[in-house]
């Protein structure tokens, strides 16, 4: 919290173009390879903000259709994440950002949908980074984003994405002493199966604007060291959120932890378990997804009433 308030946010004129950001990131990676790692392992202290963002209704509807959301006039929480994503990425793309942006792994995501946001609303989006920390296989950090109704202090959506720069160890940042243990996982009886085609990455890129090459096709993924393209983590989490359905209401907390990536094409088994309170009101839905052949867990999470 301290960093982003210590100085005024940098106001960006428009939502940055993700493809340009990715190109720039690739250039940065190359430059670092030549010049060596960043000397000062500190996160940028400022935040980036884009004001008066308007939602394109056609994009919203395509998003709702792709993810299986009811096409109501309310923005799905995952759609807001996609809106905020370029602003977040622009922070990670700064010259003083100490980690390579390309190839970073999305570890987990926490979203608070604090009020329903209608497509007619104009939004201010701010993003900043926090909590640079060691991870047993690299360095992790939190990217925070906050969405407000334009020109107001009313926060309607808040998100924390935790990323890992694998294999990057910065001077002065220690690895955690106790490596976190992967919990053993026995697949439950699935409540659903997703058939994800090769084009899922491209389709989600189309509605979210996230054209990260690791999601687009096998070739571009291989260029970044992956055997095949992988599904966007937020595509998976957003589909699980849509599958929770109308019961979740309009305000909720939404969590996901990513484990094994989903290589495309894929069959993903899914279980959604819903808990009701004593009065029969929905309280939370927990979801877990796994590879039905290997039994490896892809991701798990929950949607909880606020």
């Amino acid at each position: 919290m301290s960093g982003q308030l210590a100085e005024q946010p940098i106001i960006l004129g428009d939502v940055p173009s993700l493809s340009k950001l990715y190109l720039n990131a690739a250039a940065n990676t190359a430059r670092r390879r030549i010049l060596g790692a960043h000397p000062d392992p500190k996160l940028p202290t400022g935040s980036h903000e884009v004001r008066a963002v308007r939602v394109d209704i056609a994009k919203l509807t395509s998003y709702q259709h792709l993810l299986g959301e009811t096409a109501s006039d309310v923005l799905p929480a995952g759609f807001i994440h996609a809106l905020a994503f370029p602003v977040s990425m622009s922070v990670l793309n700064r010259d003083d950002f100490p980690l390579p942006l390309l190839g970073m792994i999305h570890l987990k995501n926490h979203v608070e949908q604090l009020a329903p946001v209608l497509f007619t609303e104009t939004l201010d989006i701010r993003a900043w980074t926090e909590n640079l920390a060691g991870h047993r296989s690299g360095t992790q950090l939190d990217v925070l984003a906050e969405v407000r109704i334009h020109g107001t202090e009313k926060v309607v959506w808040r998100g924390t994405s935790t990323y890992l720069a694998k294999g990057v160890f910065l001077p002065g940042i220690d690895k955690p002493l106790v490596p976190s243990q992967g919990t053993s996982f026995t697949p439950p009886v699935p409540t659903g199966v997703w058939e994800l085609g090769l084009d899922v990455g491209r389709m989600y890129a189309g509605v979210s604007g996230d054209f990260n090459p690791i999601h687009l096709n096998a070739l571009s993924a291989r260029a970044l060291g992956l055997p095949r393209s992988i599904a966007h983590g937020m595509y998976l989490a957003s589909r699980a959120l849509a599958d929770v359905g109308a019961a979740r209401g309009e305000t909720f907390a939404w969590d996901v932890q990513f484990e094994a990536p989903v290589f495309l094409p894929a069959r993903v088994a899914l279980e959604i378990a819903t808990s009701q309170g004593m009065n029969g009101h929905w309280q939370h839905s927990d979801y877990v997804a796994w590879n039905p052949r290997s039994g490896r867990r892809h991701f798990s999470g929950s949607v909880t009433a606020l």
Binding site: M1, S2, L5, E146, E153, V155
Partner: peptide, 12 residues
């Protein structure tokens, strides 16, 4: 509000 969050913790 953000100011309240800010002064509720640490450095702030």
């Amino acid at each position: 509000d953000r100011y309240t969050q800010f002064v509720d913790h640490g450095i702030g």
